[in-house]
């Protein structure tokens, strides 16, 4: 199982923050495949999965953003009713807690991926390896 990554950017909860980050990605011709925002009182974390993660990470750092690269797991689900349920049912049966999640739709109405960050990625991968799950291959999104 190869590694997929989420890029996390710290942002104050103010107008224009998301614009600044996405502008950098757009100008470097980096495609955002999945994304989520978690925010709390005054600040938040913006998370992206992109096609060129290494390039995006270096670029954002260079531009002065507070950014981190976190390994994630991409699990295929059917883009249809019950698709998400089938996947999270397995995760919870293994006692795997999702710290953050977003969705990458690979083929509309057919195939999507649940992208999750968990506390211990290698342990989670180990627990899931015998399950009937298809994992996102990083090469697929390059």
């Amino acid at each position: 199982m190869n590694k997929v990554y989420m890029i996390s950017v710290f942002a104050e909860n103010k107008p224009g923050r998301l614009e600044r980050v996405t502008k950098v990605l757009a100008e470097a011709n980096i495609n955002i495949l999945a994304f989520s925002i978690t925010s709390t009182n005054g600040f938040g974390v913006i998370k992206f999965m992109v096609n060129k993660w290494k390039e995006a990470y270096d670029l954002l750092r260079e531009k002065g953003f507070t950014v981190s690269l976190n390994e994630a797991i991409g699990i295929e689900m059917k883009d249809q009713p019950g698709g998400l349920y089938e996947v999270v049912k397995i995760l919870s049966s293994k006692g795997i807690n999702i710290e953050s999640a977003s969705v990458y739709v690979a083929e509309t109405r057919k195939r999507a991926y649940l992208i999750v960050e968990v506390e211990d990625t290698s342990k989670a991968k180990e627990l899931l390896k015998d399950e009937n799950l298809k994992f996102l291959n990083p090469e697929e999104i390059q």
């Binding site: 989420m6 709390t40 981190s68």
Partner: peptide, 15 residues
């Protein structure tokens, strides 16, 4: 200001 080097992408830790 938060420390750029120690940011790990987890909002729980910031809270």
């Amino acid at each position: 200001e938060i420390d750029r080097e120690l940011f790990d992408g987890k909002i729980e830790r910031l809270i």
